[in-house]
């Protein structure tokens, strides 16, 4: 099971729950499993977050694999050149 941690305001969409153990093997699976558990978070996942898998940050990388023992952080999108992100 991968350890999944929500950072920042996303926990407001999960009733305050910040940590999950999920069996996902890709970012897309992870998003689906989270959305099943907490539908309110769904619209924010695919477009508005970055994912750190074992310390490495990915953006817009739905197909990135997740290892069985991976530690995954879901972070606000890091925009860099621009400021736009989801509220």
């Amino acid at each position: 099971m991968a350890r999944v941690v929500l950072v920042g305001n996303l926990t407001q969409l999960t009733g305050g729950v910040a940590e999950f153990d999920l069996s996902a093997t890709s970012v897309r699976q992870l998003f689906r499993q989270l959305a099943d558990l907490h539908p309110e978070i769904a619209p924010h996942l695919e477009e508005g977050v970055a994912v750190a898998i074992d310390g490495q940050i990915y953006q817009d990388a739905l197909l990135e694999p997740i290892g069985a023992d991976s530690e995954v952080f879901i972070l606000p999108q890091i925009a860099g050149g621009s400021l736009e992100d989801v509220p």
């Binding site: 953006q59 621009s82 736009e84 509220p87």
Partner: peptide, 11 residues
């Protein structure tokens, strides 16, 4: 609404 424009989310 926030929708994608390129890689960004724009309102």
């Amino acid at each position: 609404e926030f929708i994608p424009a390129g890689e960004m989310m724009m309102n």
